[in-house]
Design a protein around this nucleic acid. Structure first.
Lengths: 207, 207
DNA sequence: CGGGAACTGGAGTGTCAACTCCAGAAAGTG
DNA sequence: CACTTTCTGGAGTTGACACTCCAGTTCCCG
C-alpha cells in the first residue's frame, strides 16, 4: 500500500523508543553533521542497546535522516510561529529579530540553523530529504509573510508593499546570517543583515 | 622551524602533482561534501596511482582539507574581485548581482557557495579550517566594502552611509541566497534578497 | 657523474561503520 | 489462556576508508 509513508503499527513503548532514537540522532547530527554521526553513537545516546532496534523502526540510515529532517522542521516552526503569528507592529518584528539573535548566543554561535545545516549537507544528494526541506522552508516563509500581511492589514505597511517578496528576502537574510554566525562565532553579520532588511521593510511603513 | 605553515621544497613535478590533488579534492568535496569524499576517489580523479603520493604532500586528510579551503577561497575571490573593484555605479552593482545569479544557473543551482559549503561542514569541528574561512570571508567583505566606498567617493552614495555595515549585510544576504538556491534549486530567493539589499543601498543614493 | 633528496608505485593493515540474523521477552487480541 | 505481532538483545559479517611500509625511480646540486 503506502510505499514511502509507511506507518507501521506502534505500541506505546515502540513509539517511545522510536522517538528517543530520532531525538538523539537529531541532536548528534546537529552537532557533528549527518556523515559524522554513527548509528552506534545514536544508539548509545538514545539508551538503546542494539542496532536491531534502530533497523526495526527505520529501513536504513537515510530513512532515519529523513525522520530527523521532519523532527527539526517541526522544532524550528514551533519556535518561530508564535513569534511570527503576532507580528502586528515594528516592535514585534524587532522582538522576533532579538529572539533569533538571542538564540544564537544561547548556543555559543555554534551549529547554525537546525534546518540549514541539514540542507547544506543533504540537498545535493538526497532528493527526499531535500523535498522535505523545501516544504519546511515554504512553511517558514509563509509564516513570515502572514506576519507581514497582518502588519499590512493593521495599516502599518503600505498596501502596495510586496509582502511575499519581502518575506522571502527576510528569510534568506536570516539563513545567511545563521551561516555567518556559525563561521565567525559572532552575531554581527546576522544583526546587520536582519536590521538592514527591517530598515527596508520600514521604508514601506505608512506615515 | 615552521610548525603549521610547513612549506617543503617542491620540484616542478611535485608542485604539479600536489596541485592536481588539491584541485581534484576541491571539485569532489564541493560536489559530495568533505566527509563524502574518500582519498581513493581523489587519487583517481587526480590521476595519481598511490595513496603514498597524497601522504607525501599532506600529513593527513585534515591537512588536505585545509589546502582545499585555501584553494576555494582564492577561486572565489578571483571571480569576485574584478566585479567588485569596479563598483562605481548602481549599474555595476546590478551587474555584479546578475553575474552571481548567472553563476548559479550555470551550475544548475547546485552546490551552493564553494566557501559556504565547506564552512557549514567544517566550522564547528575544525578550528584551523574555520580560521582560514573567517579570513577568506573578511577579504570578501573588504572587497565589497571597498566597492561601496568607491561609489561613495564618486558621489553616488551619501557620505554618511555606513558602507561597512552595508557590505556585511550584502555579503550575508548573498550567503543566505546561495543556501536557498541550493535547497530550492531556483534563484528567486537569491534575487529577492540581493535586490532588497540593493534597494536599501539605493535609499542612500545621492539625488 | 655521484650522492642525496624528492617523488612514485603497489601491496598491505587496522579500524570502524552500516547493516543482518536469530532467538527470546513483552504486549496487544481473540 | 492461546496466539500473533511487536519489540529487544547480542553476536556476527561485510566492506570501505584512512593511513603505512618499503622498494624503486627521477631529479636537483655540487
Amino acid at each position: 500500500m503506502s510505499s514511502s509513508t509507511e506507518e507501521r503499527r506502534l505500541t506505546a513503548r515502540g513509539r517511545a523508543t522510536r522517538d528517543r532514537i530520532v531525538a538523539a540522532a537529531a541532536t548528534l547530527m546537529y552537532e557533528r553533521g549527518v556523515a559524522g554521526t554513527s548509528t552506534e553513537d545514536i544508539l548509545k545516546a538514545a539508551r538503546v542497546t542494539s542496532p536491531s532496534q534502530l533497523y526495526h523502526y527505520f529501513g536504513d540510515k537515510r530513512a532515519l535522516v529523513q525522520a530527523v529532517v521532519r523532527h527539526q522542521t517541526e522544532r524550528v516552526l514551533r519556535f518561530q510561529r508564535p513569534l511570527l503569528s503576532r507580528l502586528d507592529s515594528f516592535e514585534a518584528l524587532q522582538a522576533w529579530r532579538d529572539a533569533v539573535v538571542q538564540a544564537q548566543h544561547a548556543r555559543d554561535c555554534r551549529g547554525g540553523c537546525p534546518m540549514g545545516s541539514l540542507a547544506a549537507e543533504l540537498s545535493d544528494h538526497d532528493p527526499e530529504a531535500r523535498a522535505q526541506l523545501v516544504a519546511g522552508y515554504a512553511q517558514w516563509e509563509g509564516a513570515i509573510r502572514d506576519g507581514l500581511r497582518a502588519m499590512q492589514q493593521r495599516g502599518e505597511l503600505d498596501a502596495d508593499a510586496d509582502t511575499g517578496r519581502l518575506a522571502l528576502a527576510l528569510l534568506t537574510a536570516l539563513q545567511g546570517g545563521l551561516v555567518m554566525t556559525q563561521i565567525r562565532r559572532d552575531t554581527t553579520a546576522l544583526e546587520a543583515a536582519l536590521d538592514t532588511m527591517i530598515d527596508q521593510i520600514r521604508s514601506h511603513a505608512t506615515l
